[in-house]
Amino acid sequence: MRFYQFWLRFRKNRAAEISFYCILVFVSLALLAPWLSPYDPFALGQRPFLPPQSGHLMGTDDLGRDTLSRVLYGTRVSLMVGVLAAATSLIIGTAVGSVSGYSGGFVDELLMRATEYVLVIPRFFLALLIVAMMGTGITKIVLVIGFLDWPEIARVVRAQFLTFKEREFVLAARAMGLKNWEIIFTEILPNAIPPAIVVGSFLVARAILLEAGLSFLGLGDPELISWGMLLSDAQERIWFSMWLAIFPGLAMSLLVLSINLFGDGINDVLNPRLKEK
């Protein structure tokens, strides 16, 4: 019932609704990539530099690999990196924000200064540096992005904790003798999570772009196909076979845009007052 009402309100925002369907399409494409791809994305041997045509809807690259198949497999990597990195950020940010907001005082001061410190570091360059030093690999990339992108979550969760820890139901729980960790987990956290999820959805989009940036500079996982890598491969040939850049670029723009609009839509439903202004 509650979910249905949420959906009805969410649907009032047309752009968000369309974005939601777009995301669903991308997710299904990623899941079904092995069955949808007309060719093995790694297989050589087709004719190179074929422009889009029937049989190769997005053409082929310099080694004769099918671009459509490669874009489909790239969707998997991008989505996976995006979601896992954002989930990592969500966990770290929620932990930091909860402790900070609930304890207050010196601990809060310390954690918030640390958060601000991470926030002001130019993320992309630090990610570049760490990946260059530690070596590439999808797990490392996910963790690096996740560990750099949690400050916003921490701040949102902390703000929620500050509002809720003085709320009467929390006082009642304390009067009933609930321990601090019980209050954090059972009383406050369930109320603090929804706004954090909204921020988390934007982080998915940002992580996708960050990973693409790393791959574009050759620091992606060489074992896997990612959109950034496709773009990187395409750049020297862009003048005579621009389809190699256009299709992965389009896919990435569409997915990132959809995720951002979707996050906006959820935010509007959760904070209807913000939208009226």
Partner: peptide, 15 residues
């Protein structure tokens, strides 16, 4: 010893 509050909405966890 227990307590009852004024704001009936804030005194119960909405979730």
């Amino acid at each position: 010893m227990q307590i009852i509050f004024q704001d009936t909405f804030a005194s119960l966890n909405p979730r």
